[in-house]
């Protein structure tokens, strides 16, 4: 199980990486942590002509914060996110989620940007990005643009990134103290991709005026904001009273897929259970 032969170049700057990528054309492929790419290479599922290594680009590094947002360099490794005090303080959902991402050795190399760009439908972080309403800063030959997370994930391993784009930075509004977050996934073994998972954020404290963002992953071909279900919860006199309707509404929100791990019906059942448990957890946090 050895990869096809390919060439390799390590970019020193973002500008250089963009020009290498443009020059390489269709045969070019970016590599950062490589934790999803290298298995695909070893299995000969991909045959790039040249890999352009962006793991060490200074423009992709660093976790910073301003008054309103926290900014995560796309090259930030999972392990760095997991231990960053800034992340812990302002986007605790991410640190909860990262504990479920594969295993320590993978988290040490895998990058946030690589994870998002790979867009595995069972991956944890894309769902968190939608729940947190993150914005992706993308740089391409025509310059910079910003893409909302909800518009970023287009399908199975598909994103809004063009072949010559590089994901540079992810910005997330700092969560106010009263914002509650919940993360849960159902995987048969620790570290496996989930059969079904839920990242959920609840803004507000009064039963009226709550804003709830339940985002499911591992169910369909992409992470999915369950907006119908959210509306049922938000519009009920008390969210728990809206749960049954919300669970029903999930069939409008989700298109569960069958794979080796579970059939579609199982996934829908798991989604409903996750919603109930998630809501219960969020409401309990308020009482805590």
């Amino acid at each position: 199980m050895k990869a096809y032969a390919f060439d390799y170049v390590r970019a020193a700057t973002l500008v250089e990486a963009l020009s290498l990528l443009e020059r390489a054309g269709e045969g070019g492929k970016l590599i950062a942590g490589g934790q999803s790419l290298v298995p695909a290479l070893n299995l000969r599922l991909l045959a790039p002509q040249i890999l352009i290594d962006i793991a060490q680009l200074p423009e992709l590094r660093g976790i910073t914060s301003d008054d309103t947002h926290i900014h995560l360099g796309a090259g930030t490794r999972h392990a760095e996110l997991a231990t960053s005090a800034l992340v812990g303080q302002h986007v605790p959902l991410l640190q909860t989620a990262i504990r479920h991402v594969a295993h320590a050795a993978i988290r040490n190399r895998g990058t946030l940007g690589g994870n998002l760009a790979h867009a595995d439908p069972a991956s944890e972080l894309p769902a968190c990005m939608i729940a947190l309403e993150a914005t992706m800063l993308v740089v391409g030959p025509k310059g910079e643009r910003r893409i909302d997370a909800i518009d970023f994930f287009k399908g199975l391993y598909e994103t809004a990134l063009e072949a010559d784009d590089i994901l540079v930075r992810i910005s997330i509004a700092r969560s106010p103290a009263e914002t509650r977050v919940h993360f849960n996934e159902l995987a048969r073994r620790a570290g496996d991709y989930a059969m079904a998972g839920l990242a959920m954020v609840m803004h507000g404290t009064q039963p009226q005026g709550l804003r709830i963002r339940p985002v499911f992953f591992g169910i369909g071909d992409r992470p999915t904001l369950a907006s119908h279900a959210a509306r049922c919860l938000e519009q009920a006199a008390d969210p728990m009273a809206g749960l049954a309707a919300a669970q029903q509404a999930l069939s409008q929100d989700l298109s569960p897929q069958e794979d080796l791990q579970a059939d579609a019906d199982t996934r829908m059942q798991l989604a409903r259970v996750l919603l109930k448990r998630g809501l219960t957890d969020l409401l309990a946090q308020g009482r805590g």
Partner: peptide
């Protein structure tokens, strides 16, 4: 396994455990 699942190739790179089958030597 050479696809990053079994962990048998775990080594330490810059002090952090890493799967050697998922790291290109050039990297």
């Amino acid at each position: 396994c050479e696809h990053g699942v079994c962990g048998a190739c775990t080594i330490r790179v810059d002090g952090a455990i890493t799967r050697a089958c998922l790291l290109l030597a050039v990297q």
